[in-house]
Amino acid sequence: MTDQPLLVADSLRLNFGETKALDDASLHIWPGEIVALMGPSGSGKSTLLHCLAGILQPESGRVSYDGRDLTAMSDSERSALRRGEFGFVFQFGQLVPELTCVENVALPLRLSGAGRREAHRTATDWLERLEVGDVGAKRPGQVSGGQGQRVAVARALVSRPRVVFADEPTGALDSLNGELVMKLFIAAARDTGAAVVLVTHEARVAAYSDREAVVRDGRVREQEYAR
């Protein structure tokens, strides 16, 4: 591992109307580490995640990824970064309902310009790796919640991103399915060397992380990075 953090949030501030979502929030993510963002509902953890991923722009402060200032990039540059370097897992509604599972997984590759056949082959490999190789031809509405979430994990990892952002990935699942998803997810992330930013309010899910950062009232209390 390098001595440089991969992704840095520096004194981010962001308001939604009257509400302070982020109030001087700072966070460092090192390559390959798994960080749990914890904190009560409405504390700003999802907002922080969206800022780190370049989905939301903070009002002040900066986010840098691999030495590049994300906040100074254009929308299309950030989109390109999200396509190539980042992966995403959300709680609900993230799979495109009209595409089959394998097409959903292949989507990031195809968005980055890969051919259909090649993308589908890679996607099928990933589905098998997450133990959902048999649902490839089904649509998301036809698979169970746990299977759908594993398809989503496969989609997040298929383009071998350096950072995966996961927002309550097990939020809609029971404990057994949640455990399975986390186990497969974290194992695959460690295999590919991806860093994971994991927003969760569940301690058992956070226990899959290397360290946690607590967000409260838009501020981050970050645990020291232990090398």
Partner: peptide, 12 residues
Amino acid sequence: RVMAVLVAFGTR
């Protein structure tokens, strides 16, 4: 929601 997710992972 789906569109926002598509945009999140970088769809043009």
